[in-house]
Simulated scan of single mutants.
Amino acid sequence: MTAGTPAAIKALVAQSRERSRRRGIDPERVDPPVDLQGVELSAHLAGHPMAAVLPVVEKILVAGVVDSGHLVAVADVDGRLLWLYGDRGVRTRAERMAFVPGALWSDDAVGANAPGLAIRHDVPVRVRGEEHFLAPAHSWSCSAAPVHDPLTGRVIGGIDVTGTDSAASAEMLALVRATALLAEAELRSTPTGGVRRLEALGTLRPTLAGLGPLTRRHAEILVLLSAYPQGLSGGALAELLAAGRLDEVSIRAEMSRLRRVLGPDVIGSRPYRLSPGVLETDAAHVAGLVDSDVAAAVAAYPGPLLPGSDAPGVVDLREELHARVRAAALAAGSAQALRNWVAGPGREDPDGWRVLGSLPGLSAAATSSARSVYRVLDDRLGA
């Protein structure tokens, strides 16, 4: 039998049901395991390669099928649901059988279902009603297709449509498979997974990889949205950009201009938020290093975040990051970290030179030089 044909899919479903019986899975269970929630789920989403295919999924599938009462799900290679799109009422119904982000819908965990079988057998699959092993899923039908890493060819996840009988039609299966192929093409065209890096530290000309320089306002917005991954309302964003001086109409106009620069799928609305996996900032990179590799964090920190910005939210982020890097450098007891600090943003920090000059193991010349600079800076500040 050819993989993906109705006969082949029927055989896969039958084999899955037999496996589930042997494994002792209760077909009446209504609580598939939800093994990732909260912060752990957020961290898994942020670092997952499937985040890079979300713009394609949203443009092709979500825009086309959600209004007809279907759900669109994106899963990882373990069959764990990562992102779920759909109307609130349909999602509420699905929650009753734990069809939610973080839940395991692998074939091993819950028996026959489209995303679980598609990922297990690396083939597009559709499952109708009572073909599902779990009784609570009998009122649902679904079509799913695997997504492959363009470099290794291995399955990295799956895309699924779940809903009424039409969710398991030949046309829906073809649409889901086409979306998966387009997602793989997107991954091939952006080897880094589509992630763009914003360089905003120590520069008056922030730049975005692949696009070049940005306006200060656009850089401010991206920095703030990166710092608030849960999203910001128009009013909250206005306050962070210019307390009491911007209204939501101005914010909408600015976001429209920014979308014309970045593309329509990078920033979502209500609230404004970055699509997962599309942007990283040099500031976030440094913040992630501070607690694990101080010397590397200081070396990667050329100076304050957007030093020309007076946006209140950016000022707070700038001061917080600068204070964290400085404190880590002074407390690390590492000559390399301190050298990086005083050679860069801490060149006029007397405490940095003082601590460096007191470290054991430095040459006499290095100790004398550090202490001399400390005295000059200390006298200057005391003058």
Rank of each mutant, 00 (worst) to 15 (best):
V249M: 00
G153M: 09
T215W: 06
T203H: 04
E28M: 11
A170L: 07
S275R: 14
R257H: 07
K59V: 00
A94F: 07
A297Q: 08
R128A: 13
Y228K: 07
P304I: 04
P206H: 04
D265Y: 15
V72C: 11
A209M: 11
V127G: 03
V315K: 09
A364L: 13
L117R: 05
A236E: 00
L241R: 03
M1T: 08
T152I: 08
E28S: 14
A183V: 03
L187P: 02
E320A: 15
S42L: 13
A295I: 11
H121D: 11
W353R: 06
H322A: 13
H44Q: 06
E95I: 03
D87A: 15
W83H: 15
H48L: 05
G129F: 10
N340R: 11
D351P: 05
G357D: 02
I251S: 05
L173I: 09
R29Q: 12
H132Y: 03
L321K: 00
A135V: 14
G212Q: 11
R29S: 12
L181K: 08
A167Y: 04
A183R: 03
D282H: 12
G163W: 02
V30K: 12
A332T: 12
A236G: 00
N113P: 07
A168E: 12
R380P: 00
R29F: 04
V30T: 14
E320V: 14
D351W: 10
R21F: 04
A238Q: 02
A284S: 15
E40C: 05
Y272H: 11
H322L: 14
E248V: 15
S143C: 09
L104N: 13
D87H: 13
D78T: 15
I25S: 04
Y228N: 12
A299Y: 12
G357P: 03
Y374K: 07
A323W: 12
W341E: 06
R88C: 04
H322P: 00
G116A: 07
E186K: 15
L45E: 02
K10Y: 02
G333Q: 15
S143K: 13
H48M: 03
V294E: 00
V155H: 01
V39T: 15
G89W: 06
L237F: 01
R245N: 07
V65W: 07
A236W: 00
T152V: 05
P33M: 06
L182W: 01
R257E: 12
G263K: 07
S368N: 08
I221C: 08
